[in-house]
């Protein structure tokens, strides 16, 4: 009879040990996998991109004193703010992959940011020159060079404030800003997986730091246009709130639809899928 049984299912004698050694496949339920799915949802969310752009543009308006900053005298700071306003949102992880025409668009946006408000108040070839400079640097600095451009812009913002040693100050602040940026990105990337809402607080903090810089160095200019400043910052805050809502929605969309028990368990015969005692999924 044993011989007959072997003929019926000879492979089974070798299957059983393999079944016991089979490990549970749980990759798509880890925090890492969830963060990846969440990021892909955010990458496809045009409303989040619009909100991010609104936040950046509103912050630019607030930082430049709602157009009160003179592009002729403070051209370096205006250039730096414009570069940061265009390049920083595009460095965020959920920004979609740029296409061939994106560099042109970014250059035009950077130029327009400087030119339009300045042309509104005072038409000057120097203003157009600063706008062209911003557009050119944004066009030249593509891909990873954008990070260097951001560091340079942050360094320039502080370098101009120390006239005695502008280059030293710019380099020092640039290095510090780069270090802080790397640290911040690594911390946020680590916290982002379990608590995605930390991004909301980081956005609030970024706006507050920009405001602190403006209040510290351009208080007389900003004081002339307080209502406009409040309006610009209010729009930026509302943009952050929209971002928070979109991130929360992505968090819900990316949550696992099912969960398997860990570790593997012993289950009856003929279940060749995986050895979990409990499987639960959303109805």
């Amino acid at each position: 009879m044993i011989g007959w049984l072997r003929r019926v299912d000879p492979a089974f004698y070798h299957k059983e040990p393999q079944l016991l050694r089979t490990q549970a496949q749980i990759a798509r339920y880890t925090d890492e996998a969830q963060a990846e799915v969440r990021l892909s949802v955010l990458t496809a969310d045009w409303m989040l991109h619009a909100a991010t752009t609104i936040v950046a543009l509103s912050a630019y308006v607030a930082a430049t004193g709602a157009g009160a900053l003179d592009p002729r005298g403070d051209w370096l700071r205006v250039w730096a703010f414009a570069v940061i306003a265009v390049a920083a949102p595009r460095a965020l992880p959920w920004w979609p992959r740029v296409d061939r025409d994106a560099t042109w668009r970014h250059a035009l946006i950077g130029s327009a940011l400087i030119a339009i408000p300045a042309l509104w108040t005072r038409t000057d070839p120097a203003v157009l020159g600063v706008a062209s400079l911003a557009g050119a640097t944004l066009y030249v600095a593509r891909g990873r060079a954008r990070v260097a451009l951001l560091v340079l812009a942050v360094g320039a913002l502080f370098g101009v404030r120390i006239p005695a040693h502008p280059l030293f100050a710019a380099a020092l602040v640039g290095v510090l800003a780069a270090g802080a940026g790397v640290l911040g990105v690594s911390v946020i990337a680590r916290v982002w997986r379990p608590r995605p809402q930390v991004v909301t607080w980081a956005a609030f903090a970024t706006l507050l730091v920009a405001c602190a810089y403006t209040f510290a160095f351009d208080a007389p200019t900003v004081a002339l246009r307080v209502p406009f400043e409040i309006a610009a910052i209010a729009v930026a805050y509302l943009g952050v709130c929209i971002m928070a809502g979109r991130i929360r929605q992505a968090e819900l969309i990316a949550r696992p639809a099912g969960v398997l028990s860990i570790p593997q368990s012993i289950v009856p015969l003929l279940d060749r899928s995986h050895h979990h005692a409990i499987i639960c999924w959303l109805a």
């Binding site: 609030f204 970024t206 405001c211 602190a212 400043e229 409040i230």
Partner: peptide
């Protein structure tokens, strides 16, 4: 880390704006 960063930013903006009475509302 989120609490520290936000708290630090709030302190920084308060310290930067406090010396300027014209910016109090802002």
């Amino acid at each position: 880390i989120g609490i520290v960063v936000l708290g630090g930013s709030l302190v920084a903006v308060t310290m930067a704006g406090a010396p300027h009475p014209a910016l109090r509302a802002l």
